[in-house]
């Protein structure tokens, strides 16, 4: 039987926000859940994030923002994925994101938004369910 390929996830901090406690914590949790994690570190532009996802052949991009720039950065990442024909990469986001912003982010194509207090198990489960299946 062919072994199932591990889910590859690029975790990124878009913009100048320095709050990386959540991103680093999730990096470890995803790794323990058997995923391959590439953490970009801080100060990423949407272009840099999409390029990393392309180079790393990522299945999932996780965006973390606590500085209120999600409405700008998250849709921009989606746009770039479309232009690069990477439509099967799913994008999830987290951080300080008011619930009234979620509908427009989903409309832009973000698959899931996870706010403060979300159990990490829920996020792992979501990614397992929604990440593209490949062998």
């Amino acid at each position: 039987m062919e072994r199932e390929r591990k889910i590859r996830i690029v975790l990124a901090k878009p913009g100048l926000d320095g709050h990386d406690r959540g991103a680093k914590l999730l990096a470890r949790i995803f790794m323990e859940a058997g995923m391959e994690v590439i953490y970009t570190g801080l100060r990423q532009t949407p272009e840099m994030i999409v390029e990393t996802a392309l180079q790393e052949d990522a299945d999932v991009i996780g965006l973390s923002s606590l500085s209120g720039v999600h409405n700008y950065f998250f849709p921009r990442v989606m746009e770039l994925l479309h232009t690069k024909d990477m439509k099967d990469v799913i994008v999830v986001g987290g951080g300080i994101i008011p619930s009234e912003d979620i509908p427009q982010l989903k409309e832009a194509g973000i698959a899931g938004i996870f706010g403060p207090g979300t159990p990490t198990g829920d996020i792992v489960q979501f990614i397992r369910t929604h990440a593209r299946q490949r062998n």
Binding site: G15, L16, D17, R43, T45, S67, V69, F73
Partner: peptide, 17 residues
């Protein structure tokens, strides 16, 4: 954040911030 990171408001990394 641009001020804290020493960038002007019109720097590319300041976009959205």
């Amino acid at each position: 954040l641009p001020t804290q990171a020493g960038y002007d408001s019109d720097h590319p990394l300041s976009m959205g911030e």
